[in-house]
């Protein structure tokens, strides 16, 4: 966000960070960035909110269909993924903590661990998707599983793929941004005086985690 690099902050980070000309200080810039992030997260919640509302409406109309649909999901894989994401939320939070404590190595390690955990999540997701696609458990029109009991079972899988797909896309984007933050962390750009990008990606990652915490019981544990 820095445009004209005019002033230097008193931050004790390893490399001094320059705040943009229209802020008074690095703290001022940090607080604005953080507010911006929260606002951004609220847009994410509203976007997913639309899908959740749709899910609840159709779940209310076709409880049997949703129940049958969920029996095709492997709750154990879902549970493993929940643990994986929770762990990754912990590592990213730890990374922020070490940035504040100016422990460069721990910042890098924890960021890398978070990316790795994200990759594990996506791998398990891939295994799940592959088995669904093979069985013809696909959205709407593409649904071709023969032995379905409920009519229009494809609708359940429309929600399954839309919700987990959009969520998975967020995991991938989060991993991408984190790779960029990791590179900057390796360059030693962060410290107690400046760690906005880590804080930002951490907040984003927590939200992605939180959404999964709702998706898991809704999709896998339908009663």
């Amino acid at each position: 966000m820095s445009i004209a690099k005019t002033t230097t902050t008193a931050g004790s980070g390893p490399k001094p960070h320059h705040h943009a000309h229209h802020f008074e200080s690095a703290e001022h810039e940090f607080s604005a960035a953080k507010l911006g992030l929260w606002v951004f997260l609220s847009t994410e919640i509203l976007m997913f909110g639309g899908l959740f509302v749709g899910f609840f409406i159709f779940h209310g109309i076709y409880p049997e269909m949703f129940k049958e649909g969920s029996t095709f999901l492997d709750w154990r894989l879902g549970a493993v993924n929940t643990v994986v994401l929770l762990l990754s939320s912990f590592t990213i939070a730890t990374s922020v903590y070490y940035a504040q404590k100016n422990n460069q190595k721990a910042v890098v390690l924890n960021l890398a661990a978070t990316i790795a955990l994200g990759a594990v999540f996506m791998m398990i997701k891939y295994i799940e998707y592959a088995s669904k696609i093979e069985a013809g458990l696909l959205p709407g029109q593409l649904f071709s599983y023969e032995a379905a009991e409920a009519a229009n079972l494809g609708l359940y899988f429309s929600f399954y793929f839309c919700m987990t797909g959009l969520h998975g896309l967020h995991v991938l984007i989060g991993m991408g941004v984190m790779a960029w933050v990791l590179k900057r962390a390796i360059n030693g750009e962060f410290g107690p005086g400046y760690y906005t990008p880590i804080e930002g990606i951490a907040l984003f990652w927590h939200l992605v985690d939180l959404i999964w915490i709702y998706l898991f019981p809704l999709l896998y544990l339908v009663e």
Partner: peptide
């Protein structure tokens, strides 16, 4: 893809 959420023929609305 024809996901059917808005398509009554596929159970949507």
């Amino acid at each position: 893809l024809g996901i059917g959420i808005f398509d009554p023929a596929l159970g949507g609305d």
